[in-house]
């Protein structure tokens, strides 16, 4: 009898469960289609281009040319310098900013948040040209510096590495601050109070309690900043003054000046691989550090 009762209505219930699963799967379908058409297909197209000669034969010549060209490695170095520099600046500027946001009242924080996010809502071109206006020879900062007599000659702030870095940091800072802020906001205020009550100064408290607890947010912010900036184009193109040639600029150059589509495609695949390798490494490292038994 028990066996009988166990199967009562079982088929119908199983069907219901399957229908439910199918329904939720179908919700994801549009985005899967978009990703497939918008991202995966072009990727295959680029891959095919990179392996084809102008006449359409399969070849590795694009890759050998790419990897034997000193300019490729130079651009990779510049790219890593820019991404690393941006990340460093984001850490130095973003962590205190996120801390400030997390430690003010929710009301003030949401207002400040709007200010932080404002740059994200303006076009990158507008922002980048804005920096040009501020940083150039007769720009705001140089006017102030020269006007106040601090320097006699305008300081070269733009059309070089410095200018490019400033533009990139400005772009990435909100993107870094968001996960960092979220992680810090989730820290129990009493934990910080407890540390203070035991005699920890603000700095010590920050170092021994807040930073370790916000590590997850900081790590994901860092990975986003570093990986995202590996493909930066507009900022170095406008603020680099032709001197700064990271990978994206080299790809554009290969494509539009040299008209070498195969080479550009191979370069694109190269960048993609670098992003993948660095991204996976960074995430792996972050996981490793987090899973490590807590330091004493």
């Amino acid at each position: 009898m028990t066996a009988m009762t166990a199967t009562v209505n079982a088929a119908g219930l199983r069907r219901d469960a399957a229908t439910e699963r199918r329904f939720f799967l179908s919700l994801a379908l549009p985005s899967l289609v978009i990703v497939g058409i918008g991202a995966i297909l072009p990727l295959f197209w680029i891959l095919q281009q990179s392996l084809a000669t102008a006449r359409g034969d399969i070849t590795l010549v694009n890759y050998t040319a790419l990897l034997t060209n000193g300019l490729t490695w130079r651009s990779l170095l510049v790219t890593l310098e820019l991404s690393g520099g941006t990340l460093l600046c984001c850490l130095v500027l973003g962590i205190p900013l996120a801390f400030l946001l997390a430690s003010t009242s929710p009301r003030t924080a949401s207002r400040l948040m709007v200010l932080v996010l404002l740059p994200l809502w303006t076009s990158i071109l507008v922002r980048t040209y804005g920096w040009l206006v501020i940083l150039r020879r007769d720009g705001l900062i140089n006017d102030l510096l020269v006007g106040s007599g601090l320097v006699s000659e305008p300081v070269p702030l733009v059309y070089n590495f410095t200018g490019t870095l400033i533009g990139m940091v400005h772009y990435m800072l909100p993107i870094f601050v968001l996960p960092t802020y979220a992680a810090m906001r989730d820290i129990d205020g009493n934990v910080i109070r407890a540390a203070a009550s035991m005699g920890a100064s603000l700095w010590h408290c920050f170092r021994t309690v807040i930073l370790p607890l916000a590590f997850g947010g900081i790590a994901s912010g860092s990975v986003i900043v570093f990986v995202y900036t590996l493909g930066f184009f507009i900022t170095p193109a406008i603020l680099g003054g032709g001197r700064i040639s990271p990978i994206a600029i080299r790809i554009d150059r290969t494509l539009s000046t040299l008209q070498d589509w195969g080479g550009a495609a191979a370069f694109g695949v190269f960048l993609l691989l670098i992003v993948a390798v660095l991204g996976v490494t960074a995430l792996g490292a972050a996981r490793l550090i987090r899973s490590k038994p807590a330091a004493d």
Binding site: N190, R193, A194, S197, V209, A294, A295
Partner: peptide, 15 residues
């Protein structure tokens, strides 16, 4: 001052 908080406020990242 030694303080014991309502929700213990222990450091979750330490033993």
């Amino acid at each position: 001052i030694g303080i014991v908080f309502q929700n213990y406020a222990l450091f979750p990242h330490m033993s």
